[in-house]
C-alpha cells in the first residue's frame, strides 16, 4: 500500500519550499530548465501510476504527452486561439480519449505483449503526425504567440512569461502529486494496487480487473496530457519526436531511476536525468555513454531508485523506526 513516511514528507516539504522560492534567486536559463523538469516530473508521475501502482508497463506513454502538445500547437497555429482556458481542458480530454482507445485495446494483453502493443500504438501516432503536412510533418510547428489564461479580455496569467509559467507548472505538479496520493488511498487506488500484486486473486474476489486497468490507463494518459501542455507552452515548439519511442523510454528511465511506486521518486528521476544531461552534453560529444553508465549504476546499486535510497537513509536515522512487521511498504 502506498504510504509516505514522515521523514520523506519533511524532505518533500523542504523541496517544495525550495522550488517555490527558486525564481527569486535562479538565473533565467535555470528557471526555464526547472520548468521543464517539473513538467517531466508530472509526466513521470503519471507513468508511475501505471508502472509502479497498476503493474502496467507502458512503453508508449509519450503518445499522450505528444498529442496534448499538438493540441496546443493546433489551437495557436490553426485556430488562432491562445486562451489556455480552452487549451488545457481540450489537451487533457484528447489525451484521455487517445488513452481510452489505446488502453481499451491494449489491456487485453499482458506482460511483454502489453509493452509491445503500447509501443506500437505510440509509433503509429508518431508516424501519423510525421506524415501529415497538415500537422507540420517532420518539422512540427514553431509558434510565436504563447498561451495565456484570460477571461474575456482580461489576461490573468501570461504563460509567455517564464516566471509565471514556472509557478503554474509548480502548482500543477503539486496538484498532480496530491491528486495521485489521494487517489491511491481511495478504494479505486487500493484496488489498482491489488491488481499490481495479484491480478488473478482480484478477479476471483469479484473485481473487474480490465475496467480498473483501463481507468488507471486513462487517468495516467490525461496527466501526461497536462505535462505535454506545459512543455509545448514552454518551448513554443512541437514535433513528432515528442511521441517517439525515445521519449517513452526516457520517461520510463526517469520512473525507474527515481523509484517506481513512490510517486515523488519519478520527479527526482526527472531532475537527475535532465540536470545530468544538461551538464554533460556540452562537455563531450558521446555524453550519452556517461548517461547510460549512470543509469546502469543506479539500477544495479539502487534497485529501488533514488527514492529508495532516501527512504532507507531516513529510516536508519529516524528516531523511532516502526517494527518491521507493522509497516506497510
Amino acid at each position: 500500500m502506498y504510504r509516505i513516511s514522515r521523514p520523506s514528507l519533511v524532505i518533500l516539504l523542504v523541496m517544495a519550499i525550495g522550488l517555490a522560492l527558486y525564481p527569486f534567486v535562479g538565473e533565467s536559463y535555470y528557471i526555464r530548465l526547472m520548468t521543464k523538469i517539473m513538467a517531466l516530473g508530472i509526466f513521470a508521475m503519471s507513468l508511475d501510476l501505471l508502472i509502479g501502482f497498476t503493474g502496467l508497463i507502458s512503453l508508449g506513454h509519450a503518445a499522450f504527452f505528444g498529442v496534448a502538445s499538438y493540441v496546443v500547437a493546433w489551437y495557436i497555429v490553426k485556430a488562432g486561439v491562445t486562451n489556455a482556458l480552452f487549451m488545457l481542458p481540450t489537451a487533457v480530454a484528447v489525451s484521455g480519449l487517445c488513452a481510452l482507445v489505446i488502453g481499451w485495446l491494449s489491456i487485453r494483453t499482458s506482460g511483454i505483449y502489453f509493452i509491445m502493443i503500447t509501443l506500437a500504438f505510440a509509433q503509429m501516432l508518431h508516424a501519423f503526425f510525421k506524415d501529415q503536412s497538415y500537422w507540420g510533418g517532420t518539422d512540427g510547428f514553431n509558434f510565436y504567440t504563447k498561451p495565456n489564461l484570460a477571461i474575456g479580455d482580461t489576461v490573468l496569467l501570461d504563460l509567455g512569461n517564464k516566471v509565471t509559467l514556472y509557478y503554474v507548472t509548480f502548482a500543477l505538479m503539486v496538484a498532480t502529486f496530491v491528486f495521485l496520493a489521494v487517489l491511491l488511498h481511495s478504494p479505486f487506488g487500493r484496488a489498482i494496487q491489488g491488481v499490481k500484486v495479484n491480478e488473478g486473486r482480484m478477479r476471483a474476489m469479484g473485481y473487474n480487473v480490465r475496467n480498473l486497468k483501463l481507468m488507471s490507463f486513462v487517468i495516467a494518459g490525461m496527466l501526461a496530457g497536462v505535462a505535454g501542455f506545459i512543455e509545448a507552452t514552454r518551448t513554443a515548439y512541437v514535433n513528432p519526436e515528442m511521441m517517439s519511442w525515445h521519449a517513452s523510454g526516457n520517461v520510463m528511465v526517469m520512473v525507474i531511476l527515481g523509484g517506481m511506486g513512490t510517486l515523488y521518486g519519478p520527479i527526482l528521476g526527472a531532475l537527475a536525468l535532465t540536470l545530468l544531461g544538461d551538464n554533460i552534453s556540452s562537455l563531450w560529444d558521446h555524453w550519452l555513454l556517461i548517461m547510460g553508465a549512470f543509469v546502469i549504476a543506479v539500477v544495479m546499486f539502487l534497485p529501488e531508485g533514488i527514492a529508495g535510497l532516501i527512504e532507507g537513509v531516513t529510516q536508519k536515522f529516524g528516531k523511532k523506526p516502526p517494527p518491521k512487521e507493522e509497516t506497510e511498504p
Binding site: V182, L183, H185, R190
Partner: peptide, 8 residues
C-alpha cells in the same frame, strides 16, 4: 468507486 474518499 469513489476516487477521493479514503478507503479506510
Amino acid at each position: 468507486f469513489s476516487f477521493f474518499k479514503p478507503a479506510l
